[in-house]
Design a protein around this nucleic acid. Structure first.
Length: 564
RNA sequence: GCGCCCGUAGCUCAGUUGGAUAGAGCACCGGCCUUCUAAGCCGUAGGUCACCGGUUCGAGUCCGGUCGGGCGCGCCA
């Protein structure tokens, strides 16, 4: 959707040297100055003119269509006063016409994308810090699906750790245990291993047996990790997060495809056996410039493989699936590691996935730690959110049945939790705070949902929204205009988010939409508008706003509500 | 020590990739529910965009340095 094509076309017809990128429109600083502004800097530079001269040349030398009422140069800026109704009509038609597709640029049509995200160690319940990975990952999945990519979501199951070995020793039949009981056992086993050397040793022995392929041990590991994984997925599912494939680390032991990598490393003399009999890669031979992180251990002296070695096989496996785009969502602590993996695979001519990093959510006391018990568990966080949302819904929606109220409370809670995380840029260290992240007021998911509910309420009272959009669309007040031009910016926001693999701008866009809608809501009565034509135009604008908001919220994994 | 990320209002964060007078929310203070849902709105107040220098018509945004915070540099995964 190009809302200002009627400006851009005539200018380029008069100055054929210019391309679309040279002509960028922005909101004028104040609506008294104009309805939309053109920054002339880049166009003027291309033409070798002074910006102010270019602005004057456009104002006096370009003939615009009926949409343009006035053109006013202001130094290097050019302010246009428009026939708002004509422009508004185009925007509302586009939104309502495209419906659930509005905002999509279909940039992924016919393309496949593979993404790996979350991949929490089985012995841990997801906490808020880790959940940042899952929520960002899941939102990227939704964003790329919205752009019509064929997306496959992978979860790497780290079923090879010593901690799993300890769990295997401690629990009988894992199916007889709850996930929480399993986690308690893990903490217990870990504590015991601290002072009981024989027990710790036995954990390593289990791991060795696992690696050697002992069928009984493998079955036991599988049963334990399966139980844990189900527990984790149940928590993540409450936030609407799901996966297509689960890739078990134990399936990538001694993978024959790694021979190709080892051969390539040997050829470049980048791999050697050190004085302690470990198999080590010297990354300096592969272009790694610094001493830090120069050596990467593949195998221990006893011949067992390191995590990073198995991960190479897993990455090869993912890359061989033939997706057009491969994404790998990682905490910032994995930056060097991902670079090392890419260098090693690169030596064998294998491309590595495109990493996407996010920073940690910290507590006021410091970093979250499962072992130290310094965590906010995702399930507790969500429970508290539902409790608070239910209080509000119970006092607000007294006419609804308890089950309906409960369903709304759960959706509000998901909105609060997801939005609180997603609205923040991923490379920002966030200090977690219960009150801020569970607030339903202000810049929050529930606030956006609330705007949707208000619109739905108007639409319910109005009845069927007419499909026909009037030629002289009478939605021309400042509040209506601000809202309309903002709605029109959505496809561009989606395109940028897709290109940057970042979703915070979608959340920011939704917030601004909700704010602008609220401004409209207060300034412009819909049901009691002073003319029939205005009533229809406004209800159509309401429907368009709801549609655009619902599309944005869907990308964020949040449901637009009709009641709350 | 070396590398990467971050530093914007008392607090939590935006800032459309270098453009007109730096914006929201929370908290504080003062208003608004016989009027489409007050999970809302309006108003007051709050800023040396960490600091120093540079690049240019123009810098919160780009470059260099300093200070402060986070992360990484494992026979962990």
């Amino acid at each position: 959707m190009k809302p200002f094509e009627f400006l851009d076309g005539p200018i380029r017809a008069r100055f054929p040297e210019l391309s679309a990128e040279d002509i960028t429109f922005a909101a004028a600083p104040r609506l008294e100055v104009g309805d939309v502004a053109l920054r002339t800097f880049s166009a003027a530079k291309k033409l070798g003119m002074a910006p102010a001269d270019f602005a004057k040349a456009v104002a006096s030398g370009v003939t615009f269509g009926p949409e343009v009422r006035a053109v006013a140069p202001a130094g290097p800026y050019l302010n246009f006063t428009l026939d708002r109704g004509m422009v508004a009509r185009g925007i509302v038609s586009a939104v309502l016409g495209e419906g659930g597709q509005f905002g999509s640029n279909s940039s992924g049509a016919g393309r496949r994308l593979l993404i790996e995200h979350t991949s929490i160690n089985p012995n841990a319940s997801p906490h808020v810090g880790r959940a940042r990975n899952a929520m960002i990952g899941d939102t990227l999945v939704r964003l790329f699906r919205f752009e019509r990519y064929g997306v496959e979501v992978h979860y790497y199951v780290n079923d090879m750790g010593r901690q799993i070995g300890l769990l295997v020793l401690s629990c009988g039949d894992p199916e007889a245990l709850s996930f929480d009981a399993m986690l308690d056992l893990y903490v217990e086993a870990n504590a015991r291993a601290e002072h009981d050397a024989a027990f710790a040793e036995e954990g390593y022995r289990q791991l060795a047996l696992m690696e050697q392929g002992d069928p009984a041990v493998r079955a036991k590991f599988h049963a334990v990790t399966e139980r844990c994984l189900r527990g984790q997925l149940a928590v993540l599912a409450r936030l609407g997060i799901a996966y297509d494939r689960f890739d078990r680390e134990s399936n990538f032991l001694l993978d024959p495809r790694l021979d190709r990598v080892l051969d390539a490393l040997r050829e470049k003399e980048a791999v050697f056996t050190d004085e302690e009999q470990r198999l080590v890669v010297d990354l300096s031979k592969l272009g790694h410039a610094r001493e830090e992180g120069r050596y990467f251990v593949l195998m221990r002296a006893n011949g067992s493989s390191m995590y990073g070695y198995r991960d190479l096989a897993y990455t090869i496996d993912k890359m061989e699936r033939g997706a057009d785009v491969n994404l790998w969502l990682l905490g910032e602590d994995h930056k060097l590691y991902a670079e090392q993996q890419a260098l090693i695979l690169g030596a064998a001519g294998i491309a590595a996935p495109e990493p996407i990093y996010y920073s940690y959510i910290l507590l006021r006391e410091g970093k979250m730690s499962t072992r130290m018990g310094k965590v906010v568990l995702l399930s507790d966080f969500l429970d508290e959110a539902i409790r608070r949302a239910a209080e509000k819904v119970d006092e607000q929606c007294t006419d609804l049945a308890p089950a309906e109220r409960r369903a709304i409370a759960e959706k509000v809670a998901v909105a609060a939790v997801r939005f609180a995380i997603l609205k923040i840029g991923p490379n920002k260290n966030v200090t977690f705070d219960w009150e801020t992240s569970l607030s339903f007021n202000g810049d929050t998911g529930p606030y956006v949902q609330y705007s949707c509910a208000r619109i739905s309420s108007i639409l319910r009272k109005f009845g069927e929204v007419p499909a026909e959009i009037a030629a002289d669309f009478p939605a021309t007040t400042d509040a209506e205009w601000r809202l309309l031009t903002h709605l029109a910016s959505f496809p561009g926001i989606v395109a940028a988010a897709t290109a940057q693999r970042a979703c915070a701008t979608i959340a920011q866009w939704a917030l601004e939409s909700a704010r602008l809608f609220t401004g409209f809501y207060h300034d412009c009565p819909v049901l009691t508008a002073d003319s029939g034509a205005k009533r229809i135009a406004r209800v159509q604008l309401c429907a368009a706003t709801r549609q655009a908001l619902a599309n944005a919220l869907a990308i964020l994994g949040i449901e637009a509500l009709d009641r709350m």
